[in-house]
Amino acid sequence: MREDVIITCAVTGDDAKVTKSPHCPVTPAEIANSAVEAVKAGAAVVHIHVRDPVTRQMSMDPALYREVVKNIRESGVEAIINLTAGVGGFVFFSNDGQVLGQDQGTDFASQETRMRHVIELVNEGKYVPDICTLNCGTLNFGEGNRTYVSTPDYVREGARICRELGVKPELEVFDSGNLWLCNKLFEEGVFDTPMLVQLCTSVPYGMPANVGLLAALVNTLPPTAQWASFGVGRMQMPMVAQSVMLGGHVRVGLEDNLYLSRGVFATNAQLVERARTIVEAMGASVATAGRAREILALKVS
């Protein structure tokens, strides 16, 4: 079990279902404010998606990311900022084998396009993120004919871009084969030490939120790796406890779960507070952003 645990708060996500919560932040100001509240509640890392303020739907507009990062940086709280770079991998198919177009959901793009907002912010040099996500495999996301595609060479390209930018990749692992790839690339020197891995459980049809499976995956990681896991919906808090027990960090937030209890909508700060209670009740301490930077070998902001 870890002595100091990093809590990440995934603030809003990109799924339209999140917007049914009255606490779902939508505008850049709302997203930044919710992130700041989560940090004050105990999160060291905030994982950021943005939404179109008019449609409330997922967006990858660099201007929206810039405003969110600016507001967090200028709020006075010390936070590690983690931007998603996973959008741009979905491919929809028809039953007769045709790849469907953008008007029917396909958003497949190059790895560089998926990271355009991160590249722009780093090149501008003023509102620079610390971490960005890198999805590490191809997966059937739920029912129907939707697949998320991230090939080994896409992952290599993402890692190359991260290294050039000085941004640490958080490796999103949705199934055991994804982790196999991460470990292989780490052996190749593609990822710097410590490799940062997020084990994403209970996402259909990836890996289930199962403590035996989680332990087996953790046992394959390099000794120097830093890792966290999360569960979706009602499995969010049980996975907090399992992660701490197995020596990992944790992630909570509205991206993965809308409820504090049955029928009771949560805020991000409330979910972080609940996770903090679990972490401390298990005898561990919650890492500050400064301590988290040391653990993850991040640059000082």
Rank of each mutant, 00 (worst) to 15 (best):
A216E: 12
G233R: 04
L134K: 00
V39L: 06
P238A: 11
L271N: 08
E157S: 08
Q102P: 11
Q226R: 14
V5F: 09
E188M: 04
K17C: 14
G248I: 07
K126L: 11
G97F: 10
N95P: 02
K184W: 08
N145F: 15
G13S: 10
A292R: 00
T133L: 07
E37F: 01
P25A: 06
A109I: 00
P152S: 07
P62V: 14
L254P: 02
V252Y: 07
G233E: 09
V197Q: 01
G189N: 04
M60L: 12
P204H: 12
R234K: 15
T12Y: 12
L165Y: 10
Q236I: 12
Q102A: 15
E187Y: 02
R262W: 09
A225S: 09
E37G: 01
V39T: 05
I48R: 02
A297R: 11
P152L: 07
Y259N: 10
L271D: 03
P238I: 13
L296W: 03
G97N: 05
A284K: 00
D192C: 09
R276T: 07
L246V: 07
W227L: 07
N219E: 12
V128F: 05
Q57R: 15
V218G: 08
K20G: 06
R274T: 15
I119V: 05
Y65V: 13
C136R: 00
V149I: 15
R56G: 01
I48C: 02
G248P: 04
V18H: 07
R2N: 11
Q236S: 12
S176I: 10
P204W: 11
A85D: 04
T113I: 13
A241E: 02
A281M: 03
P22F: 08
E187N: 13
A79D: 10
V272L: 11
M58E: 11
G42Q: 07
N140R: 15
L181I: 06
T133Y: 12
L214I: 02
E143N: 09
G76V: 04
T277P: 02
P208K: 13
G13T: 03
R66T: 14
G144D: 11
Y148Q: 09
C162N: 03
M115T: 11
E273P: 03
R163H: 12
Q104H: 08
D107L: 02
V244Y: 00
E78C: 10
F265W: 13
C200N: 12
T138E: 05
S110R: 02
M115F: 15
C132V: 04
T288Q: 11
I161M: 05
T277Y: 13
Q104T: 07
I119D: 06
K168Y: 10
D175F: 06
P129T: 04
N135I: 07
L139E: 08
P53N: 11
K126V: 15
V18G: 05
R276W: 03
G247L: 08
C136P: 01
I7W: 01
G76M: 02
N82A: 06
H23P: 00
P194Q: 13
I80E: 00
G290L: 05
V87E: 14
E74P: 04
N178V: 03
A41I: 08
A32V: 14
M245K: 13
E78V: 09
C162M: 02
S202R: 12
T55E: 09
T138W: 07
I131W: 03
